[in-house]
């Protein structure tokens, strides 16, 4: 994915963060949303390794060796931040305190099933906290490339990879489109600039519900 397409996807996904939400950004692409929020934007960022109130990342020379996010980036706390142990951190997650989580994906199915922890026989990093995040956050959005590095669709009718959680994803942001998971299937909401409707249909291995009017671009 070109860095332009990636930036466009992340900046579009960042609009999903409403003021005063409590939000967990997953490891990898999702953390990149931060650069598209105004510096004084009111949001409480939680990381499962034990902080609520994440501030900007810091340079290595200014880093505190004891202060990282779950992806290992050195961070700073904002005023009002708190630290806690892992059991408390997941009490926050499981009891439904997170308004939004943003996760990566190996596959997402038309019904909102998510697979992002295991590719049998090749890459099994483990789920980390993704199962709880996917199952328990009030809203779950995925940021991912539309296809994998071999060009195979990541958005599919049914996942054939081991699931992280069933029926959990609300919205998918990719380098090509914005899709909503609805009771009737995947609704095409927006198309990324430079892609045609047919491009999106060809790159998606699940039926798409098309809007009445021409879908807006982002």
């Amino acid at each position: 994915m070109s860095s332009n397409a990636k930036s466009r996807m992340l900046s579009r996904a960042a609009q999903d963060i409403a003021p005063n939400m409590i939000v967990n950004l997953g490891i990898g692409l999702p953390t990149g949303l931060l650069q598209f929020l105004p510096q004084d934007f009111p949001v409480c960022l939680h990381s499962e390794n034990g902080i609520a109130g994440i501030g900007p990342q810091v340079a290595y020379d200014d880093a505190d060796r004891n202060l990282i996010d779950a992806g290992g980036a050195y961070i700073s706390p904002i005023k009002g931040a708190s630290y806690f142990d892992s059991a408390t951190s997941f009490a926050i997650v499981r009891s439904g305190r997170l308004d939004l989580t943003v996760l990566g994906a190996f596959q997402v199915a038309a019904n909102g099933d998510l697979a992002n922890w295991m590719i049998p026989g090749s890459f099994t990093p483990g789920a980390g906290g993704a199962i709880e995040l996917a199952q328990k956050a009030k809203r779950v959005i995925v940021t991912t490339m539309h296809t994998d590095k071999n060009g195979k669709p990541k958005i599919v009718e049914n996942c054939n990879l081991p699931l992280t959680a069933k029926n959990c994803v609300n919205r998918i942001y990719t380098d090509m489109a914005v899709l909503d998971v609805t009771d009737n299937g995947l609704l095409l909401v927006e198309i990324a600039e430079g892609n045609s409707l047919q491009d999106v249909i060809n790159a998606t291995a699940a039926p798409l519900i098309l809007p009445q009017a021409e879908p807006p671009t982002f």
Binding site: E48, D85, S86, A87, S89, F90, A91, V93, R94, W117, T124, G126, A127, G128, G129, I131, E132
Partner: peptide
């Protein structure tokens, strides 16, 4: 390797 969801491991 036994994988456990992170919060379940903690709990």
């Amino acid at each position: 390797v036994e994988f456990v969801p992170q919060g379940i491991l903690a709990e």
